[in-house]
């Protein structure tokens, strides 16, 4: 297992070069080569191939005829696509603030070393490990008329539960509720770890300054986790922008396309109608929207590193 004498072969008979164990060497490339091969063929190439496809009238196997920006024009003339963009933003608006605020609330309440707090933390995070299939199944059972849990609860008060997933006004809200239920664990945990990084002596100093609990919360705790709050918001925007499973499995995008997000539009277009070029164009628009949020995340985390 000895190091081969690379220097010996480098220069022939003349003065041999001294060994530099930190010099760039091609054989070191072998360590990164396996990953980079997959990275190049399954991420970099598809990324550019996707852009290429978006300019073509493509089908499953080939890129077909070049059509320029026609796919993009078709998208913006398609009321269902415009509706899906609106739906996506509406969904993000429904879920992200709720996730951030409920997550923060739970973190503040459960940031204790008691056993009950630990159990509750575990409970609130547990839904996060379930798959979207199970989560949507659970919530369809909750929302289902007559047999559903919601109907049972309304029944206790002698009321009739609304048909959440069938009602045009409520369907997206129903999906949002299931999503918040599914995703609440992560923001809570992020807030908890931020809270635990606040130095204890600040609280001791505040106590010496006779600050009461709410003053401490407003003037010390919340300002200390401001950046985490922004980070949680951005992470959740990126995640929730990619809504697909919940909408597909709970409502199929209905009623009347009112719960169809961009990703579902892409799925319908590319993998059900096999209009690959149009689907690719829609993907690029989604990519652009997510990239903006990802860049914001990069800037926030970077500022954190500088501080």
């Amino acid at each position: 297992m000895a190091e081969p004498r690379t220097a010996g072969t480098a220069t022939a008979r003349s003065r041999r070069k001294s060994v530099d164990i930190y010099a760039p060497q091609w054989r070191n490339f072998l360590f990164v080569a396996p990953y980079l091969t997959i990275f190049a063929t399954l991420l970099v190439f598809p990324l550019f191939w996707g852009i290429w496809l978006s300019f073509h009238k493509a089908d499953t196997f080939s890129s077909g005829r070049f059509v320029g920006l026609d796919n993009y024009f078709r998208l913006f003339r398609d009321p269902i696509f415009m509706q899906s963009i609106w739906n996506t933003f509406y969904f993000v608006f429904l879920t992200v603030p709720a996730l951030a605020l409920i997550g923060l609330f739970l973190a503040l309440c459960l940031n204790r070393r008691t056993r009950s707090a630990a159990v509750l933390r575990a409970l609130f995070f547990s839904s996060s490990v379930l798959s979207v299939t199970i989560v949507t199944l659970i919530w369809r059972i909750v929302f289902i008329p007559d047999l559903g849990l919601l109907s049972m609860v309304y029944g206790l008060f002698g009321a009739q539960a609304p048909a959440f997933l069938a009602d045009p006004h409520l369907a997206m809200i129903g999906i949002a509720i299931a999503t918040v239920w599914w995703c609440i664990g992560l923001p809570m945990m992020l807030f908890l770890s931020a809270l635990q990084q606040i130095p204890q002596d600040i609280y001791e100093a505040a106590a010496l300054d006779n600050a009461n609990r709410w003053q401490t919360l407003w003037s010390i705790t919340l300002p200390s986790i401001k950046r985490t709050f922004i980070l949680v918001i951005i992470i959740q925007i990126v995640l929730q922008f990619q809504l697909f499973g919940q909408a597909w499995l709970m409502t199929r995008g209905g009623p009347n396309n009112l719960t169809k997000p961009i990703v579902l539009y892409i799925y319908n277009t590319a993998f059900q109608r096999w209009d690959i070029g149009l689907g690719a164009a829609a993907s690029e628009i989604l990519f652009l929207l997510i990239l903006i949020a990802a860049m914001a995340q990069y800037l926030v985390t970077r500022r954190k590193a500088d501080a």
Binding site: A2, E3, P4, R5, T6, A7, G8, R16, K17, S18, V19, D20, I21, Y22, A23
Partner: peptide, 25 residues
């Protein structure tokens, strides 16, 4: 030791040049 390269000059052990040898040897 061979953990840094030598930019010019040479290092010998028992009269034998070693700065062209890998650290372990």
């Amino acid at each position: 030791a061979g953990l840094e390269s030598v930019d010019s000059g040479e290092i010998l052990i028992n009269g034998e040049r070693i700065d062209d040898q890998p650290p372990g040897q």
